[in-house]
Simulated assay, not measured.
Amino acid sequence: MIEDRSFEFSLKIIKLVKNLKENNEYIFADQLLRSSTSIGANVAEAGAGQSRKDFISKMAIASKEARETRYWLRLIDKANLTDLCMQEYLDEVDQIVKILTKIVKTSQEKI
């Protein structure tokens, strides 16, 4: 379920953010924390959507936040800002983007 998966992803990101802050990479840590936790927050909010249109809107925002998160993860990886293996994070966010994209497309077809 995407709600659980995005929540678990946020928990993993929190560990990465702690590592970044230990390396004094506060700006990157804050940006990553904002975008990554917003994924799950928007998915959760979509579940309480007042209409299909509202559901699609929240899921589309979650998808955009996931893409932004992927950007920050790639930047952190290529700039070598942490000694943690970034591939695990990148693989997971790619899967989340795919799931959210599919949810949005499928939901739009039903309108």
Rank of each mutant, 00 (worst) to 15 (best):
M1P: 00
D4P: 02
R5I: 01
L11H: 13
L11V: 15
K12Q: 11
K12I: 04
I13A: 03
K15A: 04
V17D: 02
K18D: 15
K18W: 01
N19Q: 05
N19V: 00
K21Y: 10
K21T: 01
E22F: 05
E22M: 09
N23R: 14
Y26N: 13
D30F: 03
Q31E: 13
R34C: 11
R34H: 14
S35Q: 06
S38H: 13
S38Y: 12
I39F: 13
I39N: 14
G40W: 12
A41V: 13
V43T: 09
V43S: 03
A44F: 10
A44Q: 04
A46Q: 06
G49Q: 06
G49W: 12
Q50R: 12
R52T: 08
R52M: 07
K53L: 12
F55C: 04
F55L: 11
I56S: 00
I56Q: 05
S57P: 00
M59T: 05
A60M: 10
A62P: 09
S63I: 00
K64L: 05
E68G: 07
T69D: 13
W72D: 01
L73V: 02
L73N: 10
D77H: 00
A79H: 13
T82F: 08
D83G: 08
L84Q: 15
L84H: 06
C85M: 12
C85W: 09
C85V: 12
M86S: 04
Y89A: 11
L90Q: 02
E92M: 10
V93T: 15
V93G: 11
V93N: 07
D94H: 02
D94T: 14
Q95V: 11
Q95A: 14
Q95T: 14
Q95R: 04
I96K: 01
I96C: 14
T101L: 04
T101C: 11
T101I: 05
T101M: 05
K102A: 10
K102M: 05
I103R: 00
K105Y: 03
T106K: 03
S107Q: 11
Q108W: 05
Q108H: 03
Q108T: 05
Q108V: 02
E109V: 03
E109P: 03
